[in-house]
């Protein structure tokens, strides 16, 4: 447990809220402390966010190079995998996987595009281009 809010996280918004943490001391007592997570807990959480950021950047590159459909970028940005996305959009997982190709994405009709856009909470126009 630490007193300082944010020594490890790269994003300044992270690690600002205090949590209730338990501990067990040599005297045989369990203690409840309200405070911030210790350094190891933060390292592992930051590692996960590094991993996600890497995946998002990689997906963006592939989409801009025309090797993947914009759905890939938004899916990674939403921290979802095809299974999650299929549940969120209400489209079967095989079709979702098919739509991750740029060619298949171009042929999508408005109705399906709307489903994806709703799942990502954006408009269809935003879905079609990656900034």
């Amino acid at each position: 447990m630490e007193e300082n809010p944010n020594p490890v996280y790269k994003d300044q918004r992270y690690g600002q809220s205090k949590e209730l943490l338990y501990s067990y001391d040599a005297d045989g007592q369990f203690h409840k402390n309200v405070g911030f997570h210790g350094e190891p807990d933060r390292i592992i959480l930051q590692q996960a966010w590094d991993h996600f950021d890497e995946r998002i950047a990689d997906a963006r590159q592939r989409v801009l190079a025309g090797k993947a459909s914009p759905i890939v970028y938004y899916m990674e940005k939403f921290l979802a995998d095809p299974l999650n996305l299929s549940m969120m959009a209400g489209i079967s997982i095989w079709r979702v996987k098919w739509h991750l190709r740029p060619g298949a994405f171009k042929r999508l009709n408005e109705k399906t595009l709307k489903k994806y856009a709703d799942a990502f909470n954006i408009t269809v126009a935003q879905l079609k281009k990656v900034e």
Binding site: Y22, Y24, F30, P40, I44, Q47
Partner: peptide
């Protein structure tokens, strides 16, 4: 492998367990 190991530790420590994958709470 390091990411997978991180997942084990995250589940045990970070996501609202009170520390050590609920073992402290159960001991209490």
């Amino acid at each position: 492998a390091s990411f997978y190991l991180g997942q084990v530790l995250r589940m045990a420590e970070d996501f609202g367990t009170g520390g050590a994958g609920f073992r402290f709470i159960y001991g209490d």
